[in-house]
């Protein structure tokens, strides 16, 4: 009774620099497991963002490019256009994708570029030390919103899945989370489905993962999971927002 469990081949042995309890590590493993299961490691190019995951390239054992802040979708476009046979995925945080990179992500999705995006939404800027992100919740404290996000002055948090789903171009758009094992398993299925759509050269695929940032939320790892479930999930509902079949 029971199962084995081991590190996926697509992950290197490097210890990550992520903070204790940061869910980046879980998502890295899921992406690596999917890369292994689809047997695409030798044909894959990852694109790292600017943010906590900038050094994702130390943790994945496949070709990698490091983008400027927010520009990973444009780089992935460049890759897929000149080498459509390569598999490409961008791994981006909410500052990278929904703030400075909003133009790039919307147009890449609208062109239906055949790459996959893994979007880590932890409602804060991690690497730079806890500033407000486009996904920061109303009233949520950040170093640049010391009294909590004032929606009168900074607007409401941006829901990327809903926003991208309004684009008429076919695509796969799903929001998942990794706050509990049952969610992790569903997130993996969505990530795998996204990469499969790419492998079939079918459509653009986008998986948002509601994640935690214990350090910059100022909470323990466990409290972060709870806070994310109580506060983020109601505002960022999980599910598949768009599939190419529709």
């Amino acid at each position: 009774m029971g199962k084995t469990f081991s590190k996926p081949e697509a992950l290197t042995d490097a210890h990550t620099h992520y903070c204790p309890g940061c869910t980046h590590g879980i998502v890295h493993r899921l992406v690596a497991e999917v890369i292994d299961e689809l047997g695409i490691r030798e044909n894959t190019v990852g694109i790292a963002p600017v943010g906590c995951a900038v050094m994702a390239y130390n943790y994945f054992d496949c070709d990698f490019q490091e983008a400027a802040h927010g520009r990973a979708p444009a780089m992935a476009t460049g890759i897929k256009r000149v080498r459509p046979d390569l598999m490409a995925f961008t791994y981006q945080g909410d500052g990278d994708l929904a703030s400075i990179g909003m133009g790039e992500i919307v147009h890449a999705a609208n062109r239906g570029e055949k790459f996959t995006t893994i979007f880590i939404n932890n409602a804060i800027y991690g690497m730079t030390g806890g500033q407000m992100a486009p996904t920061t919740m109303p009233g949520q404290r950040a170093t640049t919103a010391p009294a909590g996000r004032d929606v009168e002055a900074t607007g409401m948090p941006i829901r990327m899945c809903e926003l991208l789903s309004t684009l008429a171009t076919p695509g796969y758009i799903s929001r998942q989370t990794v706050l509990k094992p049952k969610y992790v398993n569903k997130a993996k299925k969505a990530i795998k489905k996204a990469f499969e759509y790419q492998k079939e050269n079918r459509c653009y695929s986008f998986v948002e993962i509601v994640s935690t940032c214990p350090t910059n939320w100022g909470m323990t790892p466990l409290d972060s999971l709870k806070w994310a479930e109580d506060t983020l999930l109601p505002y960022y509902p999980l599910g598949e927002f768009k599939t190419p079949e529709e």
Binding site: Q65, A76, G78, R81
Partner: peptide, 26 residues
Amino acid sequence: GVFLQGESEVAVGYMIFGAAACGERV
């Protein structure tokens, strides 16, 4: 060949970077 009009020169600069980093002339 590949022709693509990007959404801005900013994006185009990085399409060039992504393609060049694959070792393709661009």
